[in-house]
Design a protein around this nucleic acid. Structure first.
Length: 199
DNA sequence: CACCCGATTATCT
DNA sequence: GATAATCGGGTGT
């Protein structure tokens, strides 16, 4: 696999309104250089936007401290957190210059390359279940705590690259999943009808 | 298919 | 001590 064929998303991509970045991440590529075993590639089909001090559902709601402090830092970096005692979730820090904190959660991918390795990492052969959830995709891509703070705008072990939108594809939205506060905000975005979306 | 629940730990009250 | 930006296995329809 030739990494030169991937066109990185520039840091300026992420230095815009969090909601806008979330929508525009749909169709882009998440690339994982997985040691000697190969390159994993997934196309983003579902995300959620989390703001900062004005978003009660956000980890950044309580201020610049703890694990969420990275959401107050520069854009384009990975925010990885451990949840429910079992799973890791991957976010990218994204916000405009006037906003203190914000990030976009990756909720589902369409597997494009390295499917065999993803199946091995996940312990399943069911293609539709491989990366159709925030905890599933981190497991498939072997992303854990060590990716906290990684720059996703440079070609390291994990980065984001330019993808595409199909002519017949469009963006749907809904309330965010699994939260108890600010339930009504329609900040979950996904490709309408895509089979790899989590639900 | 729907609903229910246990796993397992970081974070907050 | 309770809850959580989740998942997968169980039971019942």
């Amino acid at each position: 696999m030739d990494l030169n064929s991937f066109k990185l998303l520039p840091r300026s991509f992420f230095r815009r309104d969090t909601i806008l970045v979330a929508k525009e991440l749909l169709g882009q590529l998440l690339v994982r250089v997985h040691g000697d075993s190969g390159v994993l590639v997934g196309r983003v089909v579902e995300v959620e936007a989390y703001k900062g001090l004005e978003d009660p559902a956000s980890h950044a709601y309580r201020g610049n401290r703890g694990r969420a402090s990275i959401m107050f830092g520069d854009v384009g970096y990975a925010y990885v957190y451990f949840t429910y005692g079992n799973h890791f979730c991957l976010n990218v820090v994204a916000k405009d210059e006037l906003t203190a904190a914000g990030a976009v959660l990756f909720r589902a991918l369409e597997p494009l390359q390295g499917v065999d390795i993803m199946m091995k990492n996940r312990g399943t052969t069911r293609l539709l279940d491989l990366t159709s959830g925030p905890g599933k995709l981190t497991k498939a891509f072997d992303i854990s705590r060590s990716f906290y703070g990684v720059d996703l705008t440079s070609k390291g072990d994990l980065f984001l690259a330019e993808g595409w939108m199909g002519k017949d594809e469009s963006v749907c939205s809904s309330p965010r999943i699994g939260i108890t506060l600010a339930k009504e905000r329609p900040w979950r975005f996904y490709l309408c009808g895509n089979p790899y979306v989590s639900r």
